[in-house]
Design a binder for these strands. Structure first.
Length: 184
DNA sequence: CCCTGATTCGC
DNA sequence: GCGAATCAGG
């Protein structure tokens, strides 16, 4: 991918809007957040309006560089695409299309309550790959959130919500307990 | 751990 | 010029 005028324009715009480098990278596609940050600096538009980093930090036009030595071959990426390397470079990590609705069935109340405990109540913007996409509330409302609890990589839901969502259709009817409210 | 931006420097 | 690797910080 190259920095076409269009891509640069979008970058400038989003950066000005305050989006993070990784968010911009995801929107652009084909680049990592490092690439975005690098470009931002080259364009000379770093340092967004940011509440002064508390006094001293300001003056640190510091040299404390890194002793990096790349030398040999690249670390043979296990995945052909961009991946997550610790806190490093992650490009276009597409969060799977969040499903607006997942119709919960009758579920033991305590299961639902346990689920509530792990709900982070995150917005769609805060939703990440390994976060539970269980919807909370009305998707048409601003208050709509996703559970956001930890989900196993590749799983849509956290363990509690998975227990609810994937409940076998059978043993639903038997043991009657207080029906859980469906809002959670 | 998740993430953020900043910096260096081999390419 | 580009961006991975790394740092420093939340």
């Amino acid at each position: 991918m190259q920095w076409t005028d269009e891509r640069v324009e979008l970058l400038k715009k989003r950066w000005a809007e305050g989006l993070s480098a990784s968010q911009i990278a995801a929107e652009l596609g084909g680049v990592t957040r490092n690439a975005v940050i690098g470009k931002v600096h080259r364009l000379g538009l770093s340092g967004r309006a940011k509440a002064a980093p508390s006094g001293v930090a300001r003056l640190r036009a510091k040299p404390a560089a890194a002793p990096r030595r790349v030398a040999t071959a690249a670390p043979a990426p296990s995945q052909p695409s961009y991946g997550v390397r610790g806190n490093v470079a992650l490009a276009a990590a597409p969060v799977a299309a969040p499903r607006p609705i997942a119709a919960p069935r009758l579920v033991p109340l305590e299961v639902v309550e346990n689920a509530s405990l792990v709900c982070e109540r995150v917005t769609i913007m805060e939703l990440r790959e390994n976060m539970c996409r269980w919807p909370l509330g009305d998707p048409s409302q601003a208050e709509f959130r996703f559970c956001g609890g930890r989900s196993s990589p590749g799983d849509a839901y956290c363990s509690h919500h998975a227990a609810i969502a994937y409940q076998p259709a059978h043993d639903r009817r038997r043991d009657r307990r207080p029906a859980a409210a469906l809002t959670h």
